[in-house]
């Protein structure tokens, strides 16, 4: 249909450019102009979720124009805030409280309408709970095979993503005319949130009903930095033995470093820590400057979520623990002694 026509136009333009202008630079910019990305941003209570701007960073890597999309009640101010983000050309906002909770049953039709209207070649969103819930539904409605959790962009149709808990890296080429993609936040650093000047425009609102009703939420309140985007993360595992010990040892260490707190699946399963703190294949992916873990053996599912950290430090009493194979600094010892000592010494500095 429309998107197919678009692709053939793209192809034609490229062939012609290749014939007439063999030099690479004008060819690229002319071709890049035909790419258009829609970056789906997240908002909560009228505030922009800054980590969702990773979709914009990924769009910048693709080249071409970037339009950002945001929906909910009172989102005009969110749109104006996002308009300052570098790299965005246009913001489309849809003001309607029905989209506040990001329910995919009405958000997907909303996005589909706006995608059809804008004729975008690429739809990007963060690989967050919101993006994971919504984008596959959008992809199915548009009959497109989504590409999840990309960590790299090779070209407009070729993307890199980890598979098998990060034990293999897949480079994949999409033949779909519209590429629907979720991006790994830690692989695409948030763009500058100042100096941009995007135009703000109202989008179409199909006002689809949602058969699903949002009832309530219970979010862990924390003054600490957000786990997904923190510079430093301290993480505890089964070695902490109980929730009491976890709560006694980990928060002071985190505070001494100004770090976020994470946990292994074993610690979460044993009830030491909340599920939202889980780092790993099926939890959060983090890539901080420092990942300091105690009492974590280093199962492959856990490593999948943290091995892109700049520096990994580990405290574990088992010298054979696999975590030491990836740790830059390893300390073999009893965490019940070493963690408080470390906390004290960091505090006194």
């Amino acid at each position: 249909m429309f998107s197919v026509a678009r692709q053939s136009v793209l192809r034609q333009a490229r062939t012609q450019l290749r014939l007439s202008q063999p030099t690479a630079v004008p060819q690229y910019s002319a071709f890049a102009r035909l790419l258009s990305t829609l970056a789906v941003l997240e908002q909560r209570d009228g505030k922009l979720n800054v980590s969702s701007l990773a979709a914009v960073s990924a769009g910048t890597k693709l080249g071409g124009s970037i339009t950002a999309f945001v929906a909910g009640s009172g989102v005009k101010s969110v749109a104006e805030e996002a308009a300052k983000v570098k790299g965005i050309e246009k913001i489309i906002y849809v003001e309607n409280g029905a989209y506040d909770k990001g329910l995919p049953e009405n958000y997907a039709p909303l996005l589909v309408e706006n995608i059809k209207k804008g004729g975008y070649t690429h739809i990007l969103a963060g690989h967050s709970a919101f993006g994971k819930n919504l984008l596959p539904r959008v992809a199915a409605i548009l009959d497109t095979q989504q590409i999840s959790d990309i960590t790299g962009i090779e070209s407009e149709d070729t993307f890199v993503r980890p598979i098998y808990a990060g034990n293999a890296i897949l480079t994949v080429q999409s033949t779909d005319s519209t590429k629907i993609i979720t991006v790994r936040g830690t692989a695409f650093p948030v763009p500058e949130t100042d100096g941009g000047s995007a135009t703000v425009e109202e989008g179409v609102d199909p006002k689809a009903d949602s058969p699903t009703e949002w009832v309530s939420e219970d979010l862990a309140k924390s003054d600490r930095p957000d786990l997904g985007s923190a510079d430093k993360v301290v993480s505890g595992g089964r070695g902490l033995k109980s929730k009491e010990e976890f709560d006694r040892l980990m928060p002071p260490l985190a505070d001494a470093l100004g770090a976020a707190i994470g946990a292994s699946r074993a610690a979460v399963d044993s009830g030491f820590a909340d599920n939202s703190l889980q780092v790993g294949q099926t939890g959060k992916n983090v890539a901080p400057q420092l990942y300091l873990c105690a009492g974590i053996s280093g199962a492959i599912q856990h490593l999948a979520g943290m091995k892109d950290s700049k520096v990994i430090a580990a405290i574990n009493k088992d010298p054979e623990a696999p975590i030491f194979q990836v740790a830059d600094v390893g300390l073999v010892g009893d965490l019940f002694e070493k963690v408080p000592e470390l906390t004290e010494k960091l505090k006194s500095q």
Partner: peptide, 20 residues
């Protein structure tokens, strides 16, 4: 299939660090 596998590679391995 809509997606074509170009290649599958091993992830970059981290260098073993030091024990203190």
């Amino acid at each position: 299939p809509r997606l074509k596998t170009i290649k599958v590679t091993e992830p970059p391995t981290r260098k073993g660090g030091v024990k203190v």
